[in-house]
Design a protein around this nucleic acid. Structure first.
Length: 314
DNA sequence: TGAATTTGACCTAT
DNA sequence: ATAGGTCAAATTCA
């Protein structure tokens, strides 16, 4: 198809749409938060609503005019809205992944303080931190994690956790590789199954899915490389290997629309930035314990209730 | 005491 | 040359 003859442009289109949809979801979350708050002003809400509409409009424009990406892109990155996060950077990384053989995808996790943060960012796997790096242009350091069972079971899965510059309750978790460890099966069985509706097989149907999730809180998971979709999951659940089934289903249906996976936990309540700033929030080590010391984000409170929440500890 | 984290050094890709 | 990613010794934790 045209994807074969023009795969570069196709990838570009996927990337752009992914960025736009992710942005739209972020704005929608923000708006939802503000709707429940008496403190937010009308102007801010209207601004968010406008941004959401813009995101969808631009996405549709790209889908209708896939050859006009160059015209859309500057708008996104340039004169458009102030970005709520660095999702575009992330998307480019997906395309330019250096470890080509390793599948890679990204979650965006928004946390709400005081509400089971460990579960919010817990992906069900055990991770061991092996590095931390200050990233150019990023306010917060990036944490590097690999599967705890890398040594014992040769599990090659890794992830990177990066806190958003602008939106401190937003974290981008970039996964690379698939868990081959025994924990994968445990995670699979421990977490409730969620599957996509069977009719979500086309690009704009994915759009409807996203819109639907925003409206109804219906969530879908996909944690698998090769299939890329923008998704939305609630605090009470964790994307996991069960979604592999879904992924396979969808791949069989030849779904391959977005350039990466983006999750946003459904935590639209008012963000308590001060709270977040005083806790280590970067990632989760599932069954492993973590040693709170000092967060690269802010100082760490040793009495914090989220001891199980391993993250950016420096 | 073993396991996990921290962090500066080193490696690699651009 | 530089930034991102990884290593591994030192340190901390349970």
């Amino acid at each position: 198809m045209e994807r074969k003859s023009n795969s570069g442009e196709w990838e570009k289109m996927k990337k752009e749409i992914h960025e736009l949809m992710t942005e739209g979801i972020d704005y929608a979350h923000e708006l939802k938060s503000q709707l429940g708050s008496s403190s937010s002003d009308q102007e801010s809400r209207e601004h968010l609503a406008t941004k959401i509409l813009e995101s969808y409009h631009k996405s549709l424009t790209i889908m209708n005019h896939s050859g006009e990406l160059e015209q859309v892109s500057p708008y996104i990155h340039g004169g458009g809205s102030p970005k709520s996060d660095d999702s575009d950077q992330e998307s480019h990384q997906i395309i330019q992944s250096s470890k080509k053989s390793m599948p890679r995808w990204t979650e965006k996790v928004r946390i709400t303080p005081g509400v089971e943060i460990d579960r919010t960012l817990d992906d069900g796997f055990s991770w061991r931190k092996y590095g931390q790096k200050d990233i150019l242009g990023a306010k917060f350091p990036r944490g590097y994690y690999r599967c705890t069972y890398r040594k014992s079971q040769g599990c090659e899965a890794t992830k990177q956790v990066q806190r958003s510059n602008e939106n401190q309750i937003l974290f981008e978790i970039s996964y690379r590789g698939i868990h081959s460890c025994s924990q994968a099966a445990n995670v699979r069985s421990a977490i409730p199954v969620r599957v996509l509706e069977p009719d979500q097989t086309q690009g704009h149907e994915n759009l409807e899915m996203v819109k639907g999730s925003l409206d109804t809180g219906h969530h879908n998971y996909n944690h698998q490389p090769h299939l890329h979709q923008t998704m939305h999951y609630p605090l009470s659940s964790t994307p996991n290997l069960e979604s592999n089934n879904m992924m396979l289903q969808l791949r069989d249906q030849n779904i391959d629309f977005f350039g990466s996976t983006s999750f946003s936990s459904d935590l639209g309540a008012n963000a308590n930035y001060d709270y977040l700033a005083s806790h280590n929030v970067g990632s989760v080590s599932h069954s492993t314990s973590n040693s709170p010391s000092e967060s690269p984000f802010e100082s760490f409170d040793p009495s914090n209730p989220f001891k199980g929440f391993g993250g950016f500890y420096s």
